[in-house]
Write a protein that binds this DNA or RNA. Sequence first.
DNA 1: ATGTCCGTAACCTACGGA
Length: 252
Amino acid sequence: MRIATWNVNSIGARLPRLLDWLEQRSPDAVALQETKCTDGAFPYADLSRLGYEALHVGDGRWNGVAVLSKVGLEPLATELPGHPEPRFARARCGPLSVTSVYVPNGRSLDDPHYLYKLDWLATLRRTLDEQDPADPIAVMGDFNVALTDADVWNIKAFAGSTHVTPAERQGVQHLLDWGLTDVRARPGKGDHPFTYWDYRAGMFHKDFGMRIDYVLTSRTVEVGDAYVDREARKGKGPSDHAPVLVEVSIEG
DNA sequence: ATGTCCGTAACCTACGGA
């Protein structure tokens, strides 16, 4: 089974690229983030033509997440308790529970949104208790956290910034401690498996990126090849994030 | 690093968010 996560930065703006990518890579289950569309505008029909069922939560302007599957899809949850923004969707895709998350950005350390981000991560951790870490689980998406200093292009540029603070890293670490493994993807190029590059200042071409999109899997998910699909970040009209693709097989 | 891109509201430009 091939699974993937991708922050598409608007499914409307990215639809032709998304459909091409789905045809080329043919993932069985996909977590999307930042669809930025209402349920009414979600392209269910286009996806269905490629064999995908979809669970989408979105209210239009910001956020929005989806789970796509061509191995069956049973919706399990569409909201993180106490946090109604459309940033969380979970569905059963064949043998695998797939959760798509779009963790709040945090904006800046003195912004209330930063505390919201920490609370969101803590709530996500508590919500894991609805599941059993011995079951096949993938939690994937845009976590807006770089787990180590090596997960940003230059840690010195992040002094006083969000995404690299101990509190944010702890928030993600607690998810791992529950029983999830951070799948280390091969980089698409260079030494670092970055998944995000700012649109500005030629950051992508300089490979000044960040690893902030993760695929987290439980122990009954056997992980094969995993890579950052850097090709999807190239060319005209890309998202600012690249997808992460992972080959998995389910034990038992 | 602050060089771009997204959607929206309200109008062909400015703004919030990332």
